[in-house]
Amino acid sequence: MLQDQLDKLLQSILRAHEDGMDCESCNAEFECLAEQVAAGGDIHALLPAVEAHLTCCSDCREEFEALVLIIRAENGGLTSQLTD
């Protein structure tokens, strides 16, 4: 636990990127990017600045991953029923 706390701090500092895309700018790219990632696109190749922000921002990362998950499920016909 103690080691974990120190690791979190050091990792947090290490992940601070220089260009600093903020949450709003990142979110504005989500819908286009999520469609491409859901179709197999590589986020690093598509929009590295968004990838850098997602590495630093767990809020945005959680939302982006959820969006990709749902798009993939819809594309695969997995959300056609409300319940299992």
């Binding site: 469609e35 959820a66 798009i71």
Partner: peptide, 16 residues
């Protein structure tokens, strides 16, 4: 993007 993708983005934010 598709309209539904944009709407889902909003829904994801609301839910999370």
């Amino acid at each position: 993007s598709r309209f539904t993708t944009w709407a889902t983005k909003i829904a994801v934010r609301v839910a999370i």
